[in-house]
């Protein structure tokens, strides 16, 4: 573990983030639009209230978090390629995965901000009467879900080292996670063959835990309790980090083999 490189990646991403005004799009405008869409669809044109709307708001929050994580992870390596900073980073004697991890942590923070913006929009602008049963537990589950989303983002950013089409692939990857994680619609409503995909994704269990903490009544994923949800989410996130590490080692080797570090 290289904490200096993780911190450096975090700081660098933070400075770049605020220096580029387009951060507002994935961080504020996109969650705002998503929340509106989710609330109106869920309310079915009737009064905006009740657990169904709360579920929609939670979904909107996850969408915001994932948008942030994916935007950050897909642009991270592409940006370095275009900027010509990928090679100096690669040659620096530290594993790039640590820098990417730092950047993912930054996107976690921004993702959390997105989620709370969604909740604030729902509460203040639409008056959804968002009342949480267990606020502290809810905050913890949101944090855990966001970290879990970031580990998926970390794996994706590792894979993006091999490709120059990060942005395009990111667009394609945005929606599957909404579906598979249960953020958009409950996993139980998905066709049976999709369930295994949902079960191996940490965020699915994080979303389930969020619902446990926020909704007065909730039937857990595969009948699991909130404690089991948290444990599985954390375990799968750790597995994702380990996979990302080894994928990155493989990808770095391939980049040196193909000579594609400067292509963009």
């Amino acid at each position: 573990m290289n904490a200096r490189a993780v911190t450096a990646g975090f700081k660098q991403q933070a400075i770049q983030f605020f220096a580029d005004p387009q951060w507002i799009i994935p961080s504020l405008i996109s969650p705002f639009l998503m929340t509106m869409v989710m609330i109106f669809i869920s309310s079915g044109g009737t009064a905006i209230e009740g657990p169904v709307v709360l579920q929609a708001v939670l979904g909107g929050g996850v969408l915001g978090m994932w948008a942030s994580s994916l935007f950050s992870s897909s642009s991270s390596v592409s940006f370095d390629r275009i900027n010509g900073t990928f090679e100096p980073m690669l040659g620096s004697g530290t594993r790039i995965i640590y820098v990417l991890a730092g950047r993912s942590l930054w996107s976690t923070l921004i993702g959390l901000m997105n989620a709370f913006i969604v909740f604030a929009i729902a509460e203040l602008m639409f008056g959804t009467g968002l009342s949480l049963d267990r606020p502290f537990l809810f905050f913890l589950t949101v944090l855990m879900t966001m970290l879990s989303l970031s580990t998926v983002g970390l794996l994706i950013s590792s894979l993006f080292v091999l490709t120059r089409k990060g942005g395009t692939i990111a667009t394609v990857l945005e929606y599957p996670l909404y579906v598979f994680s249960g953020a958009l619609i409950p996993i139980s409503l998905l066709p049976g063959w999709m369930h295994p995909i949902s079960y191996v994704l940490g965020p699915s269990w994080g979303v389930d835990a969020m619902k446990y903490a926020a909704l007065p009544v909730h039937e857990g994923l595969m009948g699991m309790s909130i404690v089991a949800d948290i444990a599985i989410c954390m375990l799968l996130s750790i597995v994702m980090i380990v996979i990302s590490y080894f994928v990155m080692l493989y990808v770095e080797r391939k980049v040196l083999e193909y000579g594609t570090a400067t292509r963009y």
Binding site: Q16, D20, G84, P88
Partner: peptide, 9 residues
């Protein structure tokens, strides 16, 4: 050349 630095830093 021009590339290889973070311009916004």
């Amino acid at each position: 050349g021009e590339r290889g630095l973070y311009y916004r830093l």
